[in-house]
Design a protein around this nucleic acid. Structure first.
Lengths: 249, 249
DNA sequence: CGAATAGTGTCTGTGAGACAGTATGTT
DNA sequence: AACATACTGTCTCACAGACACTATTCG
């Protein structure tokens, strides 16, 4: 029976209550490591454990709910500055009947790619959230280990065929910085020379600004040219990560 | 605030009711055309219009709800025969506040790839569902036009890097039949010779059965070898569809 | 026989990856 | 001076796509 004919004679109050939340897998890169935003739980169940930030969906779209939660936890002001550069996309919905011990909770998970942000300030609502390297983010509350794993997989895939790596950088970046983003997300080093040529050869991925860095690297080397994100929304050809035969079967 | 601390002191009956449904974009190929399963709506709103099959989530996982809805509308018996060959995956969740005029409805959409199925029998519950070529499926109820469009996009992408085209065929198929699946989903003809060689060169995509068709094609030609799906879960290298520059920007 | 199809051989252009090499910075 | 880094050149192999060709079977 489709939702509609069903709803016609439906009194929602007679059915077991269902709650809908959004949870956000917010990723950024700090000190060359891929990090995820977590909050500490204060109440039961899972008190003291860490969880993904999230909350109830109010009278708003799902996308708006996710953006609002992200802004609240990071302390950023909606519709302003850094928040505008955050990429948010829907990831997957989790709804196993027993994923929350108290009642049926359907959670729409979102994936966020954020540039390096100021540490959430103490004293604000955002104080309880902090960035954790993804390989230290284990034993999360509820099914959030699964949600995080799905988010990481999606993020790694997206770097291959979209220019979203630039969402992790400053507006102006060097090819080397971009390579470090890929290395952090994929967890493996990339050949500097080939990566450089490849990035420049993909139409619309990056465009030069004419500027260069003020000085060379900490340990020497020439000043690097600065680039900004181009207008491509898909990379063509894609930047395939080194083939892992075990990903195939 | 995360979902959890919120829920601790939460009485769901005090909040506006939210309903959660699943809707299914079920695709199959009939007469060489990609078709989607639709139902005719009997009640307001959108009475008389067509919609994707769907319904309320009961005390079950979301995946189970989607499979149940699909089985109900097609008349297939759960856990049996043809139903076991259907591929089901979560597509996306739709939850705009006004997508249903009566109340807040969050819909988790699923995508199904089905082999050619018997036409739903009259006299059963499945009688009101029928297969419609996707290019004739317009003006659907609610936001189902968007859902269908998202499902088609996902299906076209999935054929590139997974062996899911075999989910549209009989268990044993010819390379030519497989090519017609790609042609139907992508909406363009493929070079027969190159496609043939490409499919056989991808490890684990198909494996020969040693058998051949009983007779050649209707209009001549040798008997074709029969293949079955291999054990690959990802195609490597992928079967990229002809490049469309406008997909990139 | 004529036509359509299954399947293979071959050539060409593109791109990925390995490697080397040059120029320009740093400590 | 020693070394790291930015960036470019070159070679090789894999693969996509165009095209040609043979063999088989149907009407």
């Amino acid at each position: 029976m489709d939702e509609v004919s069903y709803l016609a004679g439906y009194d929602p109050r007679r059915y077991p209550a269902v709650a809908v939340t959004v949870d956000v897998v917010a990723l950024t890169i700090r000190d060359g490591k891929l990090c995820v935003l977590l909050v500490e739980r204060g109440t039961q169940p899972y008190a003291g454990q860490r969880a993904l930030p999230g909350g109830f969906v109010k009278n708003e779209t799902l996308d708006e709910a996710a953006l609002r939660e992200f802004a609240e936890e990071t302390g950023l002001t909606p519709g302003q500055g850094e928040l505008g550069r955050v990429h948010l996309e829907q990831l997957k919905t989790y709804g196993d009947p027993d994923r929350d011990p108290r009642m049926r909770v359907i959670s729409v998970a979102y994936l966020a790619f954020a540039p390096r942000l100021p540490e959430p300030t103490a004293g604000t609502d955002a104080a309880r959230a902090y960035w954790v390297p993804v390989d230290e983010a284990k034993d999360l509350a509820f099914d959030h280990d699964d949600v995080l794993a799905d988010g990481l997989e999606r993020a790694r895939d997206k770097l291959e065929y979209t220019p979203l790596a630039t969402a992790f950088t400053d507006p102006e970046f060097t090819i080397s910085e971009l390579r470090h983003v890929y290395a952090a997300v994929w967890g493996e080093e990339l050949h500097a020379g080939n990566f450089h040529r490849k990035v420049l050869s993909v139409p619309g991925f990056v465009e030069g600004t004419g500027r260069t860095t003020a000085r060379g690297g900490d340990r020497g080397g020439p000043r690097a040219k600065l680039y900004q994100a181009g207008d491509a929304r898909l990379l063509h050809p894609a930047l395939l990560r080194p083939t892992r035969e075990d990903r195939v079967r």
